[in-house]
Design a protein around this nucleic acid. Sequence first.
DNA 1: CTGAAAGCGCTTACAG
DNA 2: CTGAAAGCGCTTACAG
Lengths: 347, 347
Amino acid sequence: MMVRRRKNLTLREIAELAGTSKSTVSRVLTNHSSVSPETRARVQKVIEERGYQPNFFARGLAGGPTGLVAVLVPEINSGFYAEVLRGMDDVASKNMAHLLTSIAHGADDLFDLWRSFCREGRADGVVVVAPPRAFFRKGIRKLELPAVLCAARPPEGAQRWQAVDSVTVDNEKGFTALLHHLVQIGCRSFIHVAGPQDVFDGQERRNAFEKFMEAHVNLSGQVIEAGFNPEDGLHAAESYLERSDVVPDAFVCFNDSTAYGVLESLRRRKLEAGRDVMVTGCDDEPAAQSLGLTSLRMPMREMGRECSRLLLERIRVRNREIPPRNIVFGLELQIRSSSLGHRRNRW
Amino acid sequence: MMVRRRKNLTLREIAELAGTSKSTVSRVLTNHSSVSPETRARVQKVIEERGYQPNFFARGLAGGPTGLVAVLVPEINSGFYAEVLRGMDDVASKNMAHLLTSIAHGADDLFDLWRSFCREGRADGVVVVAPPRAFFRKGIRKLELPAVLCAARPPEGAQRWQAVDSVTVDNEKGFTALLHHLVQIGCRSFIHVAGPQDVFDGQERRNAFEKFMEAHVNLSGQVIEAGFNPEDGLHAAESYLERSDVVPDAFVCFNDSTAYGVLESLRRRKLEAGRDVMVTGCDDEPAAQSLGLTSLRMPMREMGRECSRLLLERIRVRNREIPPRNIVFGLELQIRSSSLGHRRNRW
DNA sequence: CTGAAAGCGCTTACAG
DNA sequence: CTGAAAGCGCTTACAG
């Protein structure tokens, strides 16, 4: 029969049951070395039996680890951060950690959140998801808390941030593979529907596009600025198509969402994606498959998992130095009907 | 010039600055009545000037409010809970509250999370998003924490849960309007691609469908069971179309995701949605528009906001009784090309 | 209306 | 290796 109880046990009670003192129980809890194997085993047995979980307010107050991991996300594609959160929770929950989620409105808000978490020490560590460049400009005197960047790397100038871990994707490799594929099926003229340029992925993808175009003089490439929503893609495509007399061979979009907008714009002009013009996205959201949209798979959940792993490791070793790490995931090309057609080469 | 400081101030310091005692400062913080207007004003001034924020570990430990709101979500459509989270954070952050997010794997896990939050009192309140029926079966002796259900209402039998607030949508009204629209454009035979039946919306939408069919004897309706993912929709449609010799006039899907799968299945058979057969979803995800999918707009963010509002109100009044509330949002019909065609009536 | 004091459940020097 | 004790920063009876 289960032991039922209204309240959690306390350290004191565990100590009594194990015939030792609070201090010792605390030491086994915090993995302190100086506990004899026998006492440790005895205490651990009681802890297991009674399903004891330390009160995290008391822990936090006394200066111990709190089991809280803060996640700061800006207002981005909700499908993206939802998956990152899920990945983070996957490994956090296995390590008795909980996610403290905050959604920022703009770079300033994001920075305020960051600072308040650092000052107050509410969490053991922080993951910042896809921060805009402006986030790094504000000086942070010192990194008081273990931190990991998700889908971003600290920019060159940001001295203080260089020591931070990051989890990113290889945008250049991914976009290069994608462009090669498009060239292979006959595309020669490209429009890159660029994402926000103050965000890491937006910038890297554009760079990859431009680099590819520079390296292939027989191709023509142009960049039009959009954003990250379908509406942004729609507006960008509309205004481009309105003032242009030729349709490019391919629209290479920053992400799936902007590609949706481009598809809409094409539909209005009775142009068929995959036949009259190729269209590609990035992220590989669930809907991309239904739309037959060629895309690059962004391993969001895996990225979230990795963020938690890196952060928890740093938390576990406390202040001991770990050199900064950058984990890079690949973007897997998913070819679908929106880039399957064989358009005749007009060049 | 800003006052810079590494650490937060403490109650004691505020008290000294305001020339009073910790107790009194604490009383103004907790909105206790028995403080003279003058002292209150003096204390509040100091608090504002120094930007004091109480340490929430100390608060939690001492039994005060912690400013933490727990959100428990099962493994559902990530776009859905992402938006709910955002809505919740919108109003929570304005009230100095933070979201403690946990993602459950299955009903048991969800219940375990629930219980652990109740036992440990980590949060001031809990929002449970779209819990499956099984969640309610487990006996909870007493609701120790203010709670709100999102996209669910407690089932009849669950005594203990009747007192809980809930935020839902009017599935019956929404689906009735949708079906009327389909009838109007000539549909007579319907397939409902049903969602999970252990989830509130899944059940209500199916009920609405069946009720409508019973009320209109000239229509034929059939239910096929799916789930909530594109793959579920695909499999359901595939297995139906394989063994059936007639194509229905319309597929009425539980949500957009399952509709994506149905669309895929139709595409494989060279059937065009909106011409050969109508297809509808529910949720109105961003991609639905690009797909030209008729849908019902689920006001996810608004629902999240309302959840926070209800919960924070309960938290604020402490134990004082508030009768249980059920906030019901409407589902707005978005007619798109997947249900625009005029199919000839075969009846 | 106000203050001194106890207590919430931990962690961590400190002394053995 | 172990325990008694101080302290983290609050809230809340309790006594005025």
